[in-house]
């Protein structure tokens, strides 16, 4: 039995040492290779499949990030428009205010009893007040709300990240 085993191992090694082969030592190594080789190959292929799946997940995440960045660009652009809207309203308010003060000074409103001047002063003043009261954003509550929710979502995410960071430190 032992002789048969040794002979087989020597056969795997290319024959006995005396016959010019690798002998039992090489035979044992070859047999080990025969068993381990496929195992390594199968493991490698399994890892390769997993790597493919992980690469897909990474690409998916990358896409989500790219889309989120583009949406942020749109939000930035929207904020630029809000800025323009503020500038427009400021310009109108300043222009009416300038006329309001001019009427007050040029017509000496403080001491005037002239009904025409007082009426004009009152009209300009009341429309100035109406202009000041114009809301900048609330006319488009949907976008405003959406924007608010996005900001609070980002804030929440940041809070969670900060919390995790703190947990990591502690």
């Amino acid at each position: 039995m032992l002789a048969a085993t040794n002979a087989t191992l020597a056969w795997f090694g290319g024959g006995a040492l005396a016959a010019g082969g690798g002998g039992m030592a090489l035979g044992t190594a070859v047999l080990g290779g025969i068993v381990a080789g496929p195992l390594i190959a199968v493991t490698g292929l399994y890892m390769d499949s997993k790597a493919e799946e992980n690469l897909t997940k990474a690409r998916e995440y990358e896409s989500e990030v790219d889309v989120a960045v583009e949406k942020m660009e749109s939000s930035k652009s929207y904020l630029g428009s809000v800025d323009k809207r503020i500038a427009q309203l400021t310009r109108i308010i300043k222009a009416i205010d300038k006329r309001y003060i001019e009427i007050y000074n040029s017509r000496n409103i403080q001491n005037s009893c002239n009904m025409e001047s007082l009426t004009m002063f009152f009209i300009v003043g009341s429309l100035l007040k109406q202009t000041i009261d114009i809301p900048i954003l609330d006319e488009n509550k949907s976008l405003h709300k959406e924007f608010d929710s996005k900001v609070s979502m980002l804030k929440e995410n940041q809070d969670v990240k900060n919390l995790k960071l703190l947990e990591g430190i502690n």
Binding site: Y78, S81, V82, R85, Q88, L89, I92, I96, L127, Q130, T131, I134, L137, E139, N140, S142, L143
Partner: peptide, 14 residues
């Protein structure tokens, strides 16, 4: 002027 000021262009964008 006030009515033009009230008409918010952002609403159209929305």
């Amino acid at each position: 002027i006030v009515s033009l000021a009230k008409d918010n262009p952002l609403a159209k964008a929305v």
